[in-house]
Design a protein around this nucleic acid. Structure first.
Lengths: 359, 359
DNA sequence: TTGTACGCGTTATCAA
DNA sequence: TTGATAACGCGTACAA
């Protein structure tokens, strides 16, 4: 038979209630919403709890209430700095709230993502933040089964699961290429690594811009499925130089690639931007510090995290969510590495902005 | 009275058991350890579960079993790239295991840490990974109350809570300075930002090395409490040049600072390493790609994460943990930015290694 | 290998 | 504002 499993030292709600001379439910109320308990009992409960060292049992709470305060966050990479800013935004927004973030890493695999969503489901999360829009059909089913507010981040697209916040990678890259075209560049290369869905869409933007300008040439594109890094930027650029020696600019799908290209140019004594202009993507911190400073496409990752978190909380707590699909836009931050006209060259750093948004 | 709260569509263990024609406990066993159920029933249970779309309820499981499979991880920053590698190691090691990682961000605040530990405690985590050894007394009490295996990472020190894995920041920095001294540098500056406990210890190592060489001069030290960045590296280096114009080397407490120093040198046309040698700390990926390539102190962050995770799992599952305190050591990776002697200059990159460990 | 009986610690529901 | 009662879904302990 199920014998008694009572462990002596354990402090439950009941013990606190006894010591405080109230019923357990009152103690429960005190912990969830102190204002619903009269001041006198409030004080008694508080001191009783402190005296006994009471710690609420979240499992029991979740079982009884049929919900948790867990927010599941699914991102494809912990290494990619892009997600650091995003996460900072998310963590900042949830700071001091009652929600706890549970972070999972899909490693750019939709199957991993599916499995991780299954695990989240067992926890009955209060909300879900997932990266991108390329979930499997199975994955979407699981998300829907979770029956909680969901925000898809990083991208925009048709058919959102619930809410969505991001920007158009196609448009952002198109704007970057347009900027280079505006600077007089014609033989603009594209280098990209890892080639996840978002980088693929940047490549689409590149192709569209080059085709629209009747300058498209497949030899100008060099990609690799490996993780992005400065070293890889240097080697992809070297490959590109072989395929297209008459290159006059390079768009890098990530900033670390751009940094590697800059160093490779220094190594080969290629003048930037005079011989080759460089544009990166994401506008990481070091881009402004580089010599020459490096042009990049700024994306509002921190804001994206914050707002995604806010949208989730609003939805959970029944507040109306003004916009269920938010376009955060982007901005081409022009710096020395792509400033070729005399007039433009005298602008202060970061003065040149080409921004895009659907608002 | 507590009326029935039964929601019709809900699938519990019981429903699966009924459909499969077995008792609930058998289904329970099937999900936790399929091998303990006979193949015939196994198949019936599996198809019944699939048919009903059964999802285990983790809260109920945790309540009944009095434990969870949550591993709490506490790190001070998501922005600092150092932690990205560490986390990758941790996530890789737990990959495919039954444990789930819950990540919390202390933002370099011991009070935040204390609060977050409290939150973990309510979940009854199976294990805890915490950064550093500077918990408050309260924090240590909470950790001990969690009554689970604990690994402190990043540093080594006396008085571990339970297990510990890291390296000596004092020794690592001492080795880096010794390397510069060996290259003939005498006026070696120190620049550091954020000044968390580990950076403080690097500063101690610097001071010890300089004092041992009778070359200590407080004017050679410039620090700032702000987050580390390339831009900050440039500006701290500029400050340092004002205080010590006769500088012949700079040790940077973080690699992004070193990158900023390199760019500042390029901007000022200071030859690296001939006029100023540069050494960084952590050996981030871009250090090898830079022109000139940048010397740094390699720390085994990925390994640290992996091994911390392994130690935790071993401890949880009752396997003996060979070493409860692990010194991972470090390695000074000598590159062009600190290679001043003719002989050394012909060495291939990364050929120079000065490693330190207590093994 | 399978089943029986019960308890895990909390909250929902309804009544006072 | 407070309390009585039952239920949340599962695993442990023991027996067969």
């Amino acid at each position: 038979m199920g014998r008694t499993r009572i462990k002596p030292g354990k402090v439950r709600l009941t013990e606190v209630a006894e010591l405080a001379g109230v019923s357990p439910i009152t103690v429960s109320r005190f912990f969830r919403n102190p204002d619903t308990v009269s001041p006198g009992r409030r004080a008694r409960i508080e001191s009783a709890a402190k005296e006994l060292g009471y710690v609420p049992n979240l499992a029991a709470r979740a079982l009884a209430s049929q919900r948790t305060e867990v927010i599941g966050v699914l991102i494809p990479s912990l290494t990619n700095n892009v997600f650091a800013d995003l996460l900072r935004g998310i963590y900042d927004a949830f700071e001091g709230s009652r929600y706890g973030i549970q972070l999972a890493n899909t490693r750019y695999s939709v199957l991993q993502e599916e499995r991780l969503l299954q695990l989240f489901l067992m926890q009955k999360p209060a909300g879900l933040i997932v990266t991108g829009q390329d979930q499997t059909a199975e994955g979407r089913t699981v998300i829907e089964a979770a029956d909680c507010p969901v925000v898809q981040i990083m991208e925009l697209g048709a058919d959102p699961i619930d809410m969505m916040i991001g920007f158009s990678h196609v448009d952002a890259c198109y704007a970057a290429i347009s900027h280079l075209l505006g600077q007089g560049c014609r033989r603009i290369g594209f280098i990209g690594a890892r080639m996840d869905p978002r980088v693929q869409r940047r490549l689409q933007g590149y192709q569209k811009a080059m085709k629209d300008a009747a300058l498209f040439d497949p030899r100008l594109i060099v990609t690799a499925p490996v993780p992005t890094s400065a070293t890889m930027g240097g080697s992809l650029f070297s490959d590109l130089l072989l395929k297209a020696p008459d290159l006059d600019a390079v768009f890098c799908a990530n900033d670390d690639l751009a940094l590697g290209v800059l160093f490779e140019c220094q190594r080969r004594h290629i003048a930037v931007p005079e011989q080759v202009a460089i544009v990166g993507f994401n506008d990481m911190e070091f881009m402004a510090a580089a010599v020459p400073s490096l042009t990049s496409v700024r994306t509002n990752r921190y804001d994206m995290g914050r707002r995604a978190a806010t949208m989730i909380m609003d939805a959970i707590e029944g507040r109306p969510v003004a916009q269920r699909v938010v376009d955060l836009g982007f901005e081409v931050i022009q710096r020395e590495s792509s400033t070729l006209q005399r007039a433009a060259a005298t602008l202060p750093p970061q003065a040149g902005r080409i921004s895009g948004t659907k608002w």
